[in-house]
């Protein structure tokens, strides 16, 4: 099956500033893909090129089977886009804003009002449907934006910083809704965000963008493996007493191919392994007659992966919130 997004050597410059440099990306149907990167990394420019709203200097963007540069109308018919800077017509109510967008998408007049009310209810704005959009909070605007994206029944949803300005509960609900959309409706979601934690919660794969370049794509274990090699998982096991002979203890784990290193400092045994083999380690320690006090594990998360990529490519501090 052809990918829903297929970007090949996509480039865009503004004067001497290279916004997007040789972007190659394939996103299959039904996936939630997260685009990560600091401000000015080229995420929004890439999204706009996918929608045919900005013309690339070179390369091609095939979205939902259509060339976004040559056939932007067909692409926009199948893609729901929620921009980061959401602006609604303040003089219209939330419902009227939604109905307007539904009409622009050619939805049958007969069902528009009914459908719009349903989607207002879906995003939790039923009570505020008839209030002017100017009175909406940032969170309410995000919800209205999502309703607008969904009402056209898109094949692909592109969300640019969708959790910006939402309270923690709102973020949780929003992400759950996105996840359920993907699972139940088979929608593909492309999500750009600074909130690494949020991306980690819902995305199947992520792409890391720095200075217009997509440095890496993949799921978390793959990215972790690429970056940290065989030091992907760190397990600390605390014993009840200091082991008698460290070398003998190390010999007991030498047959484990996943083990990179073992550091013994007092009662603390630190294992570096290529994958999570904690149960095996515990079993071997118990077989050796040692009593275990506590076990802790550190796995490299998106925060570490992101920062590592950023350090490798720039001298700047990444802009993100790791809440």
């Amino acid at each position: 099956m052809e990918p829903i997004i297929d970007l090949k050597n996509l480039c865009k410059s503004y004067g001497s500033h290279v916004a997007v440099d040789q972007l190659n990306l394939k996103i299959p149907h039904g996936e939630i893909f997260g685009l990560l990167g600091p401000n000015g990394a080229g995420k929004t420019t890439s999204i706009l090129m996918m929608l045919g709203l900005t013309e690339p200097d070179s390369g091609s963007a095939i979205v939902c089977g259509y060339d976004a540069t040559r056939n932007p109308i067909e692409v926009k018919r199948k893609v729901g886009y929620m921009p980061d800077n959401l602006g609604f017509y303040p003089q219209l109510t939330g419902l009227e804003n939604l109905v307007y967008m539904a009409r622009l998408n050619g939805l049958p007049e007969k069902d528009i009002i009914e459908n719009a009310r349903r989607f207002m209810e879906l995003v939790g704005l039923k009570a505020a449907s008839d209030k002017p959009a100017s009175s909406y909070s940032r969170g309410m605007k995000q919800r209205l934006g999502l309703a607008e994206v969904l009402i056209k029944k898109p094949e692909l949803i592109i969300l640019d910083e969708p959790t910006l300005g939402l309270d923690p509960n709102g973020v949780k609900e929003f992400l759950e809704l996105i996840k359920s959309l993907q699972q139940e409706q088979g929608l593909t979601v492309l999500l750009s965000s600074h909130h690494l934690h949020h991306v980690q919660q819902v995305c199947d794969r992520v792409g890391i963008f720095v200075d217009g370049k997509l440095l890496a794509t993949g799921d978390l274990p793959t990215l972790s493996h690429e970056l940290f090699g065989n030091t992907g998982v760190e397990t600390s096991i605390y014993l009840t007493q200091v082991p008698m002979d460290a070398d003998v203890l190390k010999d007991k784990f030498s047959s484990f191919p996943e083990l990179n290193s073992l550091t013994i400092s007092g009662v603390n045994l630190q294992f570096n392994t290529t994958e999570d083999i904690t149960p095996k380690l515990i079993r071997r320690l118990i077989e050796s007659g040692l009593d275990i006090q506590a076990v802790s594990q550190k796995q490299y998360g998106l925060d570490e992966i992101y920062e590592k990529y950023f350090e490798k490519n720039t001298n700047l501090t990444p802009e993100h919130e790791s809440d």
């Binding site: 709203l53 921009p83 602006g87 609604f88 622009l104």
Partner: peptide, 9 residues
């Protein structure tokens, strides 16, 4: 609102 508008077909 222009970005939203232009994102429609």
């Amino acid at each position: 609102s222009l970005t939203r508008l232009l994102a429609q077909p």
